[in-house]
Nucleic acid binder design. Structure first.
Lengths: 155, 155
DNA sequence: TAACTAACATCGTATCACGACATATATCAA
DNA sequence: TTGATATATGTCGTGATACGATGTTAGTTA
């Protein structure tokens, strides 16, 4: 039905992106302080948090991160170089490369994940609100007290 | 508190990132098909969807996108080069550079925004679910019915 | 006026993503 | 079994983007 877009529609879309960027920026900074590049952190989380029925292959990780397989290869190269992840060949299918975190990788990921969970508990509600606003295609829920979620730069 | 992390905790964090990446990947592809780089689209949306009380300055856009101001400068350079955005000097404060979309920029952004709104309406619920799961630090959404016992307004 | 701050710009470098192409292994068809 | 084809991973070169360090111009304050 393609209703036309109002100023409020653009605002709710932009606010959603702002909230997403705030979360991602938090994550990027946390990763870097932990000595990892942001994408490398994402690869580790994808390996550790894979659905139980999936094997931790290069291609599977690429799909979870929505990147091309060769981008995943490069990320894994750096992670393996840093001692965070190790490769082994698949047993059934020798084309496959199966990935696992090293103890060093497990430790860093655990700390980052705790930190992220805490951030989500505090920043999550604003994200859900922005998402709902953008989904209904109008900024109706910001007529409530949440208008002052307007945020300044974090230190 | 810092409850230890279970396998389900890692899964819910990873699922959230997967959902976010799915949305962002959709957006990246849409931008590129429209002839824009993803970040350049974000700059245009930030300009158009700025809160009413804010001026569309370089620094303001940088803050909304959570990037350094000089990264915003480079993005605006490319957008201006492509004829999507124009700069003008601030009237009060001549250090400021105020940004505005050109008609060409307005047109592309409008089309992309309609497309994004439609995507959000279909993909949004999964995102909200993943977000809620990760916020409570457990993957409980498989039990959707019970999850909604403590709900707020559902759209 | 001088010192200081703020807003924007430039430069060099690193990460990351992609397309195009390459290699190894598996599978299928006859 | 062989040859064709598909699948999984890897390599190479390029471009967009982000950052830190530094520079320039305009406003502010002592």
């Amino acid at each position: 039905m393609h209703r036309a877009l109002t100023a409020a529609d653009f605002q709710s879309l932009a606010d959603l992106r702002h909230q997403i960027r705030r979360f991602l920026h938090f994550s990027e900074q946390a990763s870097r302080r932990a000595g990892l590049e942001p994408r490398q952190h994402q690869v580790m989380l994808a390996i550790k948090g894979l659905p139980a029925n999936a094997r931790p292959r290069i291609g599977e990780i690429a799909q979870r991160l929505q990147i091309q397989h060769h981008s995943a290869v490069e990320l894994v190269n750096r992670l393996a170089g840093g001692g965070y992840v190790r490769r082994r060949r698949g047993g059934q299918d020798r084309r496959e490369v199966l990935l696992a975190l090293t103890p060093k990788g497990e430790k860093v990921l655990r700390e980052l994940s705790l930190y992220h969970r805490a951030e989500l508990q505090s920043a999550g509600p604003a994200l859900v609100r922005a998402l709902r606003d953008a989904m209904r295609g109008m900024a109706s829920s910001r007529t409530q007290q949440t208008t002052f979620t307007k945020n300044r730069r974090t230190a």
